[in-house]
């Protein structure tokens, strides 16, 4: 067993480690993209303009109603197709291959954004409206009210939901192995192909994902306690 996980040419320890790092890198790069899309989606669905609201609804419903794997395929194959058609139109003969990593960031970011939009919308609606009214009463602009009153408090309401989405994102990165990104799942498959030890390597992969998720949950619990400091809660 130790031999299978040895570093260097003899074992698969270093390959699994690089795979794990790539998994973390993919999740870490996707997170800000997804958060940005989440804010866009929340603003669209709370907009006074019915057309913008419809766009927000369509985005959130399609992304949440479709398998993540299918979204990934559509982005990977369709994104390349659309990009090349566009590039060819601008500069004939030009072509660009969309990489599995980029496809993963876009697809998982789109999915994260759709769910995050719902979380953020809920958080905005949990804010005390009296505070925005107080802001208006002392002559703050809408922008000032957003930056100084709403956004700082949003964190507290959105954190539990966003934490769940982060854990889902970590697990969903495993799907990008299907379009041949050499992350943890893919590296485990490569090791299995040579060693014929599928049970061992997939168990190791599960254990690594599990450790990442449990650690994330522990850190998130700490962050939630910190976000809620100074808030008095009624005892049940």
């Amino acid at each position: 067993m130790e031999r299978l996980l040895a570093f260097g040419d003899a074992g698969w320890g270093d390959e699994i480690l690089w795979g794990t790092l790539l998994t973390l890198e993919l999740a870490a790069v996707t997170l800000p993209v997804g958060m940005l899309l989440g804010f866009f989606s929340a603003f669209l669905s709370m907009s006074a303009n019915p057309v913008l609201r419809a766009i927000g609804w369509a985005y959130s419903t399609t992304m949440r109603g479709m398998p993540e794997l299918l979204t990934l395929f559509i982005v990977y194959y369709g994104g390349g197709l659309a990009l090349n058609t566009g590039l060819n139109w601008l500069w004939p003969g030009m072509s660009f291959e969309i990489s599995p990593f980029l496809a993963g960031v876009i697809a998982l970011g789109l999915v994260f954004g759709a769910y995050a939009g719902e979380v953020l919308r809920g958080a905005f609606q949990s804010l005390n409206p009296g505070q925005s009214e107080a802001g208006m009463a002392i002559g703050m602009t809408q922008r000032q009210i957003f930056w100084r009153i709403k956004l700082p408090q949003l964190w507290r309401f959105a954190l539990p939901g966003l934490g769940n989405l982060w854990v889902n994102l970590l697990k969903d990165t495993s799907m990008v192995s299907v379009i041949t990104l050499g992350e943890l799942m893919r590296m485990s498959q490569v090791a299995v192909r040579t060693t014929k030890e599928p049970f061992f390597f997939f168990l190791v992969a599960c254990a690594i994902y599990w450790v990442m998720c449990v650690l994330s949950e522990m850190i998130l619990a700490k962050m939630e306690t910190r976000a809620n400091r100074g808030i008095i809660r009624a005892r049940a």
Partner: peptide
């Protein structure tokens, strides 16, 4: 905790390919 903390794809591989070893 294990079912919720690991990807379903990994669970599926563990059962389908892993069973081949036994």
């Amino acid at each position: 905790s294990m079912m919720r903390g690991t990807p379903l794809l990994a669970q599926l591989f563990l059962i389908y390919y892993g069973s081949g070893q036994f």
